[in-house]
Design a protein around this nucleic acid. Structure first.
Length: 570
RNA sequence: UCGGGGGUCGUCUAAGCGGUAAGACAGCGGCCUUUGGAGCCGCCGAUCCAGGUUCGAGUCCUGGCCCCCGAGCCA
């Protein structure tokens, strides 16, 4: 069941906002922003932040900006800004005309830097990067003042202007805030606020060769946009004093920075660096590989955006580090799809089943329910004939205990079809593999009910061999083989799950799927939820991804059986 | 070692700012079923530790312990 909206208690951020509204701190306004750096693709961790920022704005009747934090031309590209906009939209949020770039404020920021210099609160340092590091001190020892710390305002103004004009090589000097080289907070030991980079910027071209650092650019961007609550992740906690310092020093509008714990998901990694590694080393097909936790990967895999939003609501927002079980995501997806996905029949690993007493040239249409959770979805005709395919897993020559499916002499139901009893089967003598099963059907059970009231313990999905369409099916599993792949000494890349992607060709689908495209998600009965691949699938050459499997209680029983028989051998 | 954060069922999140530790996921068991699906019912299960204040502490105080972040001219 879906939880009743509004019953969930508020998280600490919304409590802060409530208080600020009560005290009239920002005139009752709520204005947030989602500020990605366009240096990679968005992943589900970003979805948490997007849902938080855009969600809060919606709830409070406020606004949320999309702002690209593009202050480092060395790593940023338009390709990424495109994908980020696409992903935010896909997730279901809209920034309307509130699309901004930190680079739009380069002129203003330059002006603010000049102001700081004039106040004697910033200086040009000509120490080398290595020297700056040495002078900074360590976690437990204070730093020392740079010999250039006391340059005159005039000299600093002149030097900074010349930095801007491109008179210096990269690394020759930087502009630093003059704060406190002995501060226990390293961020306050005269942080760099401008550095030289002779690189074109994807928006400002070659206009600038000096670029502001995050700490300087971010608080000012927030201030310029009149953001009320600047929500970011925990690692920025000890940057907050610096955020506040710049704004106070300049005497400008001052938003509140609030930090929350970023999302971690079991069996996956969510760091740009590691995801980039997977892509560059070709361990996955790309950023949108259906196994990737990127939004483009999840989209390709078929997860509905609503499910991701509901997942983000469910995990909550707090300050403690945590690893959310990916099973919760899967559960949320199943919950949505169960209600909405039309049912179809498809066979992953076909096993021929011939009905010995069904006339060779006969065929008929059976009526199948599209969605038992939503009868308004109606029914569809499914063709039936003498030769069918069933799932290899659904026949066992020697059925183990608790196995209810087809076996020699046993009767089962073909869904929406007939009761069939296995009278014979054929086996490849070389491999021992079952190659064909022969059954007799009971014409009186058409539709799946026996007039004499007899019961069967299993219902199998099937497709008519003559009418089936072929497809490739990709089963997607967790990318890593353990809950926390980055824990311990070993490289996370040694923890990849070798079975994260299983490709089956020659799968057989009911003919109504012939024209399927990525706009619709289906449940293939008893197998899971599937979607046509948004890159590789086309009519005549269908490719489906499994979004998520159905809950499989038989698999659990089987696993337990295997385990206990192992025990017996011990 | 210094500074900043954080420790509640296996997991995630709650507990109107001192008053019966709650929900969801996972796990386990049952009912039901033309998907071994879905649904329904039940069970299991936690306040880091030690003191203190109090009629009463997850919440307040003291002292420990453990975990995360921080020494980019990255964000």
């Amino acid at each position: 069941m879906h939880e009743v909206a509004g019953e969930r208690p508020k998280d600490f951020i919304r409590e802060i906002i409530d208080q600020d509204i009560e005290t009239g701190r920002f005139g009752g306004r709520v204005h947030t922003r989602f500020p990605p750096e366009p240096n990679g693709y968005l992943h589900i961790g970003h979805a948490k932040s997007i849902c938080l920022n855009f969600g809060i704005a919606q709830e409070y009747g406020g606004l949320c900006n999309l702002r690209f934090d593009d202050t480092n031309p060395a790593t940023e590209e338009v390709e990424y800004v495109q994908s980020i906009m696409e992903d935010v939209h896909w997730l279901g949020f809209d920034w309307d005309d509130r699309l901004y770039y930190a680079s739009d404020y380069f002129d203003q920021m330059y002006g603010y830097a000049v102001e700081l210099i004039k106040m004697g609160k910033a200086y040009v340092d000509s120490l080398s990067p290595e020297e700056i590091r040495e002078y900074r001190g360590t976690l437990s020892e204070p730093g020392r003042d740079s010999p250039y710390r006391d340059r005159s305002v005039e000299e600093n103004l002149d030097l900074f202007e010349r930095m801007r004009r491109g008179e210096f090589a990269e690394g020759a000097c930087v502009l630093r805030a003059k704060i406190d080289m002995a501060s226990p907070n390293l961020n306050l030991r005269d942080p760099t606020i401008y550095r030289i980079k002779h690189l074109p910027h994807h928006r400002t071209g070659s206009k600038w060769c000096i670029y502001p650092m995050y700490d300087f650019a971010h608080c000012l961007s927030d201030s310029i946009e009149r953001i009320t609550h600047s929500i970011c992740t925990l690692e920025f906690e000890d940057h907050r004093p610096l955020y506040d310092w710049f704004l106070d020093a300049l005497g400008v509008y001052h938003p509140q920075q609030i930090e929350f714990a970023r999302l971690n998901l079991s069996y996956t990694v969510l760091s740009k660096r590691r995801l980039l590694q997977l892509v560059e080393e070709r361990r996955v097909w790309g950023w949108d590989d259906p196994r990737m936790p990127t939004l483009s990967g999840l989209r390709r895999r078929g997860l509905p955006p609503e499910s991701i939003r509901r997942f983000c609501e469910r995990i909550g927002v707090a300050k403690r580090d945590s690893i959310v079980d990916v099973a919760l995501l899967e559960h949320t997806v199943r919950e949505d799809l169960n209600l909405t996905a039309p049912r179809r029949m498809g066979v992953l690993r076909p096993l021929k089943l011939t009905l010995l007493n069904y006339p060779e040239d006969q065929e008929e249409m059976l009526e199948a329910i599209n969605n038992p959770e939503d009868l308004s979805a109606g029914t569809r005709p499914v063709p039936f004939s003498r030769e069918l395919y069933i799932e290899q897993d659904d026949f066992r020559e020697n059925p183990p205990p608790k196995y209810y499916r087809l076996a020699p002499g046993r009767e089962v139901r073909l869904r929406y079809g007939y009761f069939v009893r296995c009278v014979d089967y054929r086996k490849d003598p070389a491999t021992g593999e079952i190659t064909e099963v022969f059954c007799e059907y009971d014409p009186a059970t058409r539709g799946g009910d026996a007039p004499d009231g007899r019961k069967v313990k299993a219902t199998l999905h099937w497709v008519s061999a003559r009418h089936a369409v072929d497809a490739e099916i990709r089963l997607i599993d967790r990318l890593f083989d353990r809950p926390n792949p980055t824990e311990g000494d070993e490289d996370f890349r040694t923890r990849l799950n070798p079975d994260s992607l299983q490709i089956y060709r020659g799968c057989k689908l009911e003919p109504s799927l012939a024209e399927a495209d990525p706009s619709c998600r289906f449940q293939f009965e008893r197998l899971g939820y599937f979607i046509a691949d948004n890159r590789d699938s086309r009519p005549g050459a269908l490719v489906f991804n499994r979004i998520v499997s159905l809950r499989d209680t038989w698999a659990k029983i089987e696993a337990r059986l295997a385990k206990s028989s192992n025990h017996d051998r011990d």
